[in-house]
């Protein structure tokens, strides 16, 4: 397992798309360091040959019937939009 000191907060916050203040960086580094040190005890466990569990009761191939039905009406889907125009979400310009 990687060492707790491998953790690079700036890199991970960037991946998570969250800006952090200087104060948050100091505080989270120390708190997450404690958590990672605690988590490192999982290294003691012998997991050789153990299958991973993603779900306690896995169900596979759950198909919906191929029948058209009404979805969420446009006005309901847009009801909570921070900005909207002409039945669309408005976002900052993404292409020049």
């Amino acid at each position: 397992m990687p060492k707790p000191e491998d953790f690079n907060l700036d890199h991970v916050a960037n991946l998570a798309r969250i800006n952090l203040t200087a104060e948050e960086k100091t505080r989270f580094s120390s708190q997450l360091g404690d958590v990672l040190t605690y988590i490192a005890q999982l290294n003691e466990v012998n997991v050789d040959g153990v299958e991973p569990t993603a779900h306690a009761f896995p169900v596979v191939n759950v198909w919906a019937d191929d029948v058209a039905e009404a979805g969420l009406p446009v006005e309901d889907a847009l009801r909570n939009a921070p900005e909207k125009r002409d039945n669309m979400f408005v976002v900052p310009k993404v292409v020049e």
């Binding site: 991970v12 999982l42 466990v45 997991v47 153990v50 299958e51 569990t53």
Partner: peptide, 19 residues
Amino acid sequence: LSSGYYDAYYLRAQKVRTL
């Protein structure tokens, strides 16, 4: 979940979950 850490953390935790 990030590149290089998935097996060491997430996959291992899922195996411990099995146990």
